[in-house]
Design a protein around this nucleic acid. Structure first.
Lengths: 225, 225
DNA sequence: CCAAGGATCGACCCCACGGTTGATCCCTGC
DNA sequence: GCAGGGATCAACCGTGGGGTCGATCCTTGG
């Protein structure tokens, strides 16, 4: 009996890659795919799935919230959260939402396959790099498993900050962003600084990398204009 | 006998990226560029071009209409349509307009280069995902023309420079790159400076954007963490 | 042999950037 | 009313990054 896997990611290319990897496994099969959280929930209503590979950053309904809704249902499949960046909020909120595992997208395929088998058999899998921080923060409050109403952790950036980030990610300087948004450069600098702090990045260069890696901006997606 | 290529796209960064990729090919050279369809037609009146890489979405005159006008002229160059979206309308109308090929921007560089050579030699090239649907309705039409070689040397990166560029594109600082490559920071700065000059970019931020937009770096490639 | 180009490094200058602090204004919620 | 958060802006300052010039070493090709 092969493991019935569902892929949820807004990046078609990434889904294709995973599908090919999984297709090469004798004990796995990809039975469903979805491009966002809403679509994922719909598909799950009519398809039997054992393990869901869930991306965090998605349009409409992000992976954390989608995970929460999936896991709140009876007979729910196991959810394995996948993301590109090792950001605490993702891991914590994802696991809090009911996910059985949390891994970075850049893990070796073999490791990912092992993770899928682990969660399918009931085990929990967490990326090694986040395990330590997980224990540090969660061990004192381990018995609690209830969810909280707060749901602003994902990219705790404000709208304005995200707007600035988009422009930073397109290669614009602070001055250009100021002109584009009709702001003073000082304001832009404030926003950029806060973005860096909140995301734990060093400089705007890493913002660009992050933006592309998370799909916030996407190659060929009309960056300039 | 290098292939004389013209780039038509409203995104300067993307043009630069393609230029860089093409410049690395011994049998290709970028002899002209344009930011919209009108400009493209103007330039073509005074420049001999073998293959036109044409974006679909552009201001003033879109790629399909520009293609139509180009191909309606005698001795017209081959047109290879590039777009981000895999929509039938683009492919069909583009090919109907006389284009010799149709590809998505996110194809691997090697594939794009192959497509250019194919188109230049008179073949028709279509993105694999649309080929099937296409064969059902259309039969490629393709006139012919030949041209001559020349050398012009536009921003060609050396191996070392390309190596440095890859690291820049992953968000590393000059110091980190120096450590990684076992170099002095001064050397890295020299390389970075030359990269910027050759590619016509302003700073390393734009290098990252360019790298992702051209597929030099792919999202999910484990660039950062 | 010599010329040319690439790779390596140093010194210098300038400035955009990022960090810090502090301020004003507005809106929302208690 | 007040507190809080977001958005806006200013001044300061240290540093990394980019531009420029120059230098040495090596390989390649004529």
């Amino acid at each position: 009996m092969s493991i019935r896997v569902m892929l949820v990611d807004d990046q078609v290319l990434l889904r294709t890659g995973f599908r090919m990897v999984l297709a090469a496994q004798p004990d796995m099969e990809v039975v469903a795919e979805a491009g966002d959280g809403v679509e994922a929930l719909e598909v799950l209503r009519s398809t039997a799935v054992d393990v869901v590979l869930m991306d965090v950053r998605m349009p409409k309904l992000d992976g954390v919230e989608a995970t929460r809704r999936i896991c709140s249902q009876p007979d729910a499949p196991k959810v394995l959260i996948l993301t590109t960046f090792d950001l605490d909020e993702y891991a914590f909120s994802g696991l809090k939402a009911g996910a059985s595992g949390f891994m970075l997208k850049d893990v070796p395929p073999a490791e990912l396959l092992g993770a899928i088998r682990s969660v399918h058999s009931g085990d929990a899998v967490v990326a090694p790099s986040t395990t330590r921080r997980l224990l540090d923060r969660f061990s004192p409050m381990l018995p609690s498993s209830g969810r909280e109403p707060e749901r602003k952790e994902l990219g705790r950036l404000t709208d304005r900050e995200r707007e600035v980030m988009m422009l930073v990610a397109q290669g614009l300087s602070n001055g250009e962003i100021a002109a584009r948004l009709v702001l003073s450069e000082a304001t832009v600098k404030t926003h950029v600084g806060r973005i860096l702090t909140k995301l734990g990045l060093r400089d705007r260069v890493q913002v660009v990398v992050l933006a592309y890696e998370t799909g916030l901006v996407r190659a060929g997606g009309g960056a300039a204009g």
